[in-house]
C-alpha cells in the first residue's frame, strides 16, 4: 500500500516550520540507512519509507520505524531534524498544512493511515495529540475535558459524562487540584496544570495512541517532573510517542529512542543502549553535546 495524500481539507492555516535547507539535509555524512531495531513484530503503528515535504522542501527522507504497543518511544534530535513533522504525520495533523505531502506506508493496527477510506476524524480519535504549548480552549475546565466526548457522542447521559471528566482528570493527576473549580476557565490554570488539562482532554476520548510534541518545553522543572511521572503511569493503557528536546527526559520516560538528524532517521534502539552506547557517530555527537 503506497498511499500519497496531499492537502484535501482546504484550510488556509499556515504554520511555521523549522525545516533547514534541503540541500544540506541530503548530505548527512556517513548515513547509509537507519541503524538499529526499527522494525517490530505486531507493532501498534508501522511506518515504512516515509517521505514528507512542504512544497519544495523535503522534511523527512525515507524513514521506517515501528512503534510497539504500550511503550513510550522518544524522538530526539537537533531542532529542524523533522521529528515533529514525523509525529504530526502519524495522526494526519499535517493535513491542515497547505502543500504538505506525505508518501510511504503508514499503518495503525495494519490499517493504512493515508488511505482514502481512513477517516481523519476517526483516526484522530484513536491517535490523540498533546502540543508543545498548552492550548486549553477558552472554556471551563469541565467543558475542556467534556469537549471530545461531546463531539463524538461517547456518553449518553450527563452522569456518564461527569464520570468521564472525573476519571480523565484523575488519570492526568489533576483532579485533586481542580475538583472545587471545574467551572473555572481552563486558561486560568498554571502552565503545568494547563498541560495536564490538555493530557486529560486527550485521555477523555480514550485514544489508543497519544502523541506528545515536546510537552514540557514550556514548563518549569517541577511541572515537568509531574508530567514525566504521569507519562510513565499512562504507559499501562496507551502507546505514547514523545518528541523531546531534552535527552534527560527521553532517558527518564522512554523505553526506546529514535534519533533524527536533518530529516533522516539515523538510529533506533533501546533507550539505555542509545544513551550509553550509541552506534552512529552523529548520535554520539548529539548525546555528548557536540551539537544540539
Amino acid at each position: 500500500m503506497n498511499a500519497s495524500v496531499t492537502e484535501d481539507l482546504g484550510t488556509s492555516s499556515v504554520t511555521e516550520f523549522d525545516v533547514r535547507d534541503p540541500d544540506r539535509s541530503t548530505q548527512v555524512k556517513g548515513f547509509e540507512g537507519t541503524i538499529g531495531e526499527n522494525t517490530l513484530d505486531n507493532p501498534k503503528i508501522s511506518t515504512r519509507n516515509v517521505n514528507i515535504s512542504y512544497g519544495e522542501k523535503q522534511a523527512i527522507f525515507d524513514a521506517s520505524l515501528d512503534i510497539g504497543r504500550n511503550e513510550v518511544i522518544a524522538m530526539i534530535g537537533p531542532s529542524g531534524c523533522g521529528k515533529s513533522t514525523y509525529l504530526r504525520a502519524l495522526n494526519r495533523m499535517n493535513d491542515t498544512i497547505v502543500g504538505c505531502r506525505v508518501t510511504g506506508d503508514l499503518t495503525i493496527d495494519g490499517e493504512p493511515i493515508y488511505a482514502h477510506n481512513m477517516d481523519p476524524v476517526l483516526l484522530r480519535a484513536r491517535v490523540g495529540m498533546v502540543f508543545q504549548k498548552p492550548n486549553p480552549f477558552p472554556k471551563s475546565i469541565y467543558d475542556n475535558i467534556a469537549y471530545g466526548p461531546r463531539i463524538h457522542g461517547l456518553t449518553r447521559t450527563n452522569a456518564e459524562l461527569d464520570e468521564v471528566v472525573v476519571t480523565s482528570l484523575q488519570r492526568a493527576g489533576l483532579f485533586e487540584e481542580v475538583k472545587d473549580r471545574l467551572d473555572a476557565p481552563g486558561t486560568g490554570l498554571s502552565g503545568g496544570q494547563q498541560q495536564r488539562l490538555c493530557i486529560a482532554r486527550t485521555i477523555a476520548v480514550s485514544p489508543e495512541v497519544i502523541l506528545m510534541d515536546e510537552p514540557c518545553s514550556a514548563l518549569d522543572p517541577i511541572a515537568t517532573a509531574i508530567i514525566e511521572e504521569l507519562i510513565d503511569e499512562l504507559r499501562a493503557n496507551y502507546t505514547i510517542v514523545i518528541v523531546t528536546h531534552s535527552m534527560q527526559q527521553a532517558a527518564r520516560v522512554s523505553q526506546r529512542t529514535a534519533y533524527f538528524h536533518l530529516g533522516k532517521l539515523i538510529e533506533v534502539g533501546e533507550t539505555n543502549q542509545i544513551f550509553t552506547n550509541p552506534r552512529h557517530e552523529l548520535t554520539e555527537n548529539y548525546i555528548t553535546g557536540k551539537f544540539g
Partner: peptide, 10 residues
Amino acid sequence: NNTEIVKQSL
C-alpha cells in the same frame, strides 16, 4: 467500543 461509536457518528 469508542471506535465504533465514533464511526457511527461520522
